[in-house]
């Protein structure tokens, strides 16, 4: 069996395990919903990493999606409308910002994204009369396909949507990476000018991936808003962007399961660790990030893949 087919099998197993975990321990359902949502956002980071670019500002799009839900929910309290709306808004802003940042590479790309997300953060924080500042906004009750749901049922519904979106985007990104557009991303990293001499605009290739990453981050934000029912400017803060990059590297950029493995590990550890070591949380993340980069570059997925490779070889 090839690794690509094993990947699908593993994804199904992982989904089953998540469902079982959520069934056995109710509070895990919420944690895993958030993990799946972040995994979707990290898929976009993975696309950009393929092109050798890293954005320190993608929390901007997560926050956009989340605030879109918070602002639209009172007048349009339906998940199947809110999600596309959030995705469309994030995609539109992603296109606008992308037209600007896709001209830049490496540190400029990373820092311009960071700067723009910090601007958005301070807008959310300062425009109190619109955004209620750091207090944030409560998201009212939302129907799912017209059904008003309560408590656990609602939680399950959001979990289900998150899982479905994770699968959908996972499969899409998997196909995208194998496609000419995805392969050209890696070409940007290694020999960008050659693309130009083949008649292809590297900028448009990067822009497409960027918009896609913004859409996915927007969906993730919408899911987070639906799950937590409360949005604050912290969603856009640099530490949130840093988390996405962290998860991408921890999970491994080699395959689409990486972001989800990374996100689940991250959220589970955080539940236990963040409360006890709140002041050292970023420090722990930074240290793990360094260790992964220096000693286990493929991340969790890299370890899984090499283990599978050894088993097949044996």
């Amino acid at each position: 069996m090839t690794l690509r087919r094993t990947e699908i099998l593993l994804a199904l197993l992982l989904a089953a395990a998540l469902i079982l975990a959520a069934l056995s321990t109710p509070w895990l359902r919420f944690v895993l919903t958030i993990a799946l949502a972040k995994g979707v956002a990290v898929l976009g980071i993975l696309l950009l990493l393929r092109a050798g670019q890293v954005s320190f500002g993608h929390a901007l799009y997560v926050a956009l999606g989340a605030y879109a839900v918070a602002f639209l929910a009172p007048s349009m309290p339906e998940a199947s409308l809110l999600l596309p709306a959030a995705a469309a808004l994030a995609g539109a802003v992603g296109l606008l910002v992308g037209l600007f940042v896709s001209r830049y590479r490496e540190i400029f790309f990373g820092m311009l994204n960071l700067a723009l997300s910090m601007v958005f953060y301070s807008v959310l924080e300062k425009l109190y009369h619109i955004t209620k500042g750091t207090d944030g906004i409560r998201v009212p009750a939302i129907t799912v396909l017209g059904q008003p749901l309560e408590g656990a049922t609602y939680g399950w519904a959001v979990f289900g949507i998150a899982l479905a979106l994770a699968f959908l985007f996972g499969l899409f990104v998997r196909a995208y990476l194998a496609s000419p557009m995805g392969q050209a991303l890696a070409a940007i990293k290694t020999r960008e000018t050659r693309l130009d001499f083949m008649g292809v605009s590297p900028r448009q290739i990067l822009l497409s991936a960027y918009v896609l990453s913004a859409v996915m981050a927007g969906c993730a934000g919408a899911l987070i808003a639906m799950a937590t029912r409360h949005v604050t400017p912290l969603l856009a803060y640099w530490t949130a962007s840093g988390e996405l990059v962290f998860i991408a590297v921890l999970g491994g950029a080699g395959g689409v399961l990486g972001p989800f493995l990374g996100a689940i590990t991250f959220e589970l550890v955080r539940v236990y660790a963040a409360a006890t070591v709140a002041d050292a949380w970023q420090m722990i993340l930074g240290t793990v990030l360094l260790l992964v980069i220096l000693f286990a570059r493929g991340g969790i997925w890299g370890l899984v893949a090499s283990w599978l490779g050894r088993r097949r070889a044996a």
Binding site: F172, A178, S179, P180, M198, V200, S208
Partner: peptide
Amino acid sequence: LAIAARDGIWSPLRPL
């Protein structure tokens, strides 16, 4: 990739 560049690189779902 060169062939794709000539014949249509903008297909996100079919493999290279």
